[in-house]
Design a protein around this nucleic acid. Structure first.
Length: 493
RNA sequence: GGCGCCGUAACCGAGAGGCACAGGUGCGGGAUUGCAAAUCCCGAUACCCGGGUUCGAAUCCCGGCGGCGCCUCCA
């Protein structure tokens, strides 16, 4: 698979079209993804966004690309300061705590760590230097300890402000506001440097004590680690304006390359039962909370079963559906693992034909799988092809109860390999799907085994009411027993 | 109000001129099962509305209606 040469087409927010992904060096993608502002726990909306970029990265890597993945921590900002004040700790303590927590969540979700995760507070000198350059270039001005970016001045020279978010200057102008205490020449100008108020954390700068504005950190850090033009810049759509529009203007003013980002990839937001997650609605679902009920595979399936640009409306039913889908995958894969030890029957014309069509199913579905991903990363369609292979396996196994021919066995194992490979490309943990559940506590594990054996003995004695009582009692504890031909297995509900 | 996205079965969700075989979840019937579960088979239900273009429209165009996002807090 590594030698496959696909043209990868991806919707570009800047041009509003699907375009071939053209990195500046062939098969090397410089990818910057806007990361978290660590002022609170990571929630499932973040998880969706990061899962999408994680899967996209794995897809490219699987095709033999090198992806240089940079994702920042915006570890100083107004929300962090406010939160730290509420909690009575310092901004950096607060940020570090949430960064540590997010890294754990990140791992639990099964995400590849980005190669570089720069913190804003580690880049203050670079940021100050860049702001200085913008002032020298005439793109920025000081006002009472603040430094603002002059959109009008930028627009004069580059003429593309508003292109990314699809707005013209008048429209932006109409909506622009000036906060009390700001000294902008023009309401659409935005802060590069904010003067520190009483009690706020600060860094010394040529313009006095303060901290970076919201957008400059991404310009500075993306350029520092990725150079330019940056091949792909990603985040959720809601960052398109103002964040990315402003970031793009600053970066272009800094390096005078247009476009400084070749491809903007934005994914849709996640809503909860129709509403945007917000503190006032109290409907924020922390990732750690979601991971208590569902495994990383379940969440990943949920996120990838909708096209990345569509909004995703999270509900418990939908989550349960995703969990059931993963169970179907596990079921099929687990069953194939038992194929080698199943009785073999003689090869004949029929079994040979059947195995050929299974091989075809595998080849064709895998092909379509990659094509779907190459066409604007359509994971929803791609997963459909995986499930076609799953159907092929389960149907064959159900139909050939009395035995499989050698070639049929081969074909099933071939499908297993294809499914595993496809799922791995998207970042699923296939090993976890085929691993029976374990109990960490050894004693508890022994008791469980004992209970199952006891129940088997009761069933052998036809003491079904007792056996059923054990099963339903365990059911109340969230443990489901399944009696199959190979014995009884258990799983968590 | 401006800009953008969207409307496909009970639900989720692909498809973008050529028969609605996507796929998943759920539901009904059957097989299997001591009974369940799991699995298999069969089944039901869908292209928001109205015009237009076309031999042919879910798909393209126009107009409605409805929903969502952004419009300086946002992943």
């Amino acid at each position: 698979m590594k030698q496959k040469n696909f043209t990868i087409r991806l919707y570009n927010t800047l041009t509003k079209r699907k375009e071939p992904l053209h990195p500046r060096t062939e098969k090397v993608l410089h990818m910057y993804v806007c990361g978290l502002t660590p002022y609170d726990s990571m929630h499932i909306g973040h998880a969706r966004t990061f899962t999408i970029f994680d899967a996209f990265r794995r897809f490219l890597e699987h095709l033999g690309w090198t992806v240089i993945h940079v994702q920042n921590w915006t570890d100083i900002d107004d929300k962090i300061i406010q939160r730290a004040n509420e909690k009575g700790c310092s901004s950096s303590e607060l940020a570090e705590d949430y960064i540590a927590e997010a890294m754990t969540d990140w791992q639990n979700l099964g995400l590849c760590p980005p190669h570089i995760m720069p913190r804003v507070t580690d880049h203050i000198p670079e940021i100050i230097q860049s702001i200085g350059e913008l002032i020298n270039g005439g793109y920025a001005y000081q006002a009472d300890g603040d430094v603002y970016f002059s959109v009008a001045r930028y627009q004069n020279e580059f003429g593309d402000y508003g292109d990314l978010s699809g707005q013209n200057l008048e429209e932006i102008q109409a909506g622009a506001r000036v906060e009390p205490g700001e000294h902008k020449r023009n309401p659409i100008d935005f802060a590069l440097w904010k003067r520190a108020k009483e009690g706020e954390p600060f860094w010394d700068s040529p313009w006095g004590r303060g901290r970076p504005g919201w957008h400059i950190e991404c310009s500075v850090m993306s350029l520092k680690y990725l150079g330019h033009p940056i091949d792909l810049h990603g985040a959720a759509v809601e960052l398109t304006f103002p964040h990315h529009e402003n970031e793009k203007a600053q970066s272009q003013a800094l390096v005078r390359v247009q476009p400084v980002v070749r491809h903007w990839m934005h994914c849709g937001v996640l809503n909860v039962a129709g509403d945007k997650m917000s503190k006032s609605l109290g409907n924020i679902i922390p990732l750690s909370e979601a991971l208590k009920k569902s495994g990383p595979n379940d969440l990943r399936l949920l996120f990838l079963s909708t096209h990345y640009r569509s909004p995703l409306n999270y509900t418990d039913d939908l989550m349960a559906g995703a969990r059931a889908s993963v169970r179907r995958l596990s079921e099929a894969l687990t069953q194939v693992l038992q194929v080698p030890s199943q009785p073999t029957k003689e090869e004949d014309t029929t079994s040979s034909k059947k195995s050929i069509s299974l091989f075809q199913l595998g080849h064709q579905s895998t092909d379509l799988f990659y094509q779907a991903l190459a066409d604007d990363f359509n994971t929803a369609e791609a997963l459909g092809y995986v499930f076609r292979m799953v159907g092929g396996i389960l149907t064959t196994l159900a139909l050939e109860r009395e035995g499989l021919s050698p070639r049929q066995k081969e074909a099933l194992l071939f499908l297993f390999g294809k499914i595993k490979s496809c799922l791995t490309v998207l970042g699923f943990d296939v090993d976890q799907m085929v691993t029976p559940p374990v109990i960490q506590d050894e004693m508890a594990q022994d008791l469980m085994t004992l209970l199952i054996e006891l129940r088997q003995k009761l069933r052998a004695e036809k003491l079904f009411s007792l056996a059923d009582w054990i099963r339903s009692s365990l059911g109340e504890k969230g443990i489901i027993l399944e009696d199959g031909p190979e014995g009884t297995r258990w799983r968590r509900k």
